[in-house]
Structure formats: C-alpha cells, structure tokens
C-alpha cells in the first residue's frame, strides 16, 4: 500500500478554482500540486496529495499524528528487495 504523507502548503498561486496551484512542502521537498479539488485550502494547511492533485485538507493535529506514526515505522525492518 502507499503511505499518504501530508504536505504543508507554502504558497498558492492562481485565483481560478480550477487552475489554482500550491507549492507543497513534504519534509523539505517542494512539489507543485493542483488545488482544484480543495477550494477550501489555504496557505499553511496540510494536504494529502495523489498523482499531483491535493485530495483533502487535514488539520495540523492530524498531520502531526501521521508524522508520529511514520516516524515510529522508521525503525521497522521489512524483508524484500531494493
């Protein structure tokens, strides 16, 4: 399965709902994502992104909870290839 890592909206450009874009910060890596599906998203919000589209806005508390889980998983070993 995939991990849905929340990213923080650093800045937003564009006005029109369909073409609004956000610069999203995923732990230091910046990605552009379409905000067409999250008209309510504002700068500073956390979003879940799938194939370049922000799917949903989550509050900071939720985002921190997810980061906590992900950090807890860092120490797990998994068998497998590359």
């Amino acid at each position: 399965m995939c991990l849905a890592v929340p990213g923080k909206i650093e800045s937003i450009h564009g006005e029109e709902a369909l073409t609004r874009m956000g610069r999203i910060n995923f732990g230091g890596v910046i990605r552009e994502a379409s905000l067409a599906f999250v008209p309510e998203a504002r700068q500073g919000d956390y979003v879940i992104v799938h194939v370049g589209c922000a799917l949903s806005v989550i509050d900071e508390e939720e985002a921190l909870q997810i980061f906590q889980y992900i950090n807890a998983m860092r120490d797990d070993s998994v068998p497998g290839g590359p």
Binding site: V5, F26, M73, P79
Partner: peptide, 15 residues
C-alpha cells in the same frame, strides 16, 4: 535476505 529500510517520507515522494 532481510535488510533495513529507512521509511523516509521523502523517498515516498521521490520514487
């Protein structure tokens, strides 16, 4: 062979 994987959110995005 089991080996250790670092679950770094960034690698989830970069792949």
């Amino acid at each position: 062979m089991a080996h250790r994987i670092i679950i770094d959110p960034v690698t989830r995005i970069e792949g």
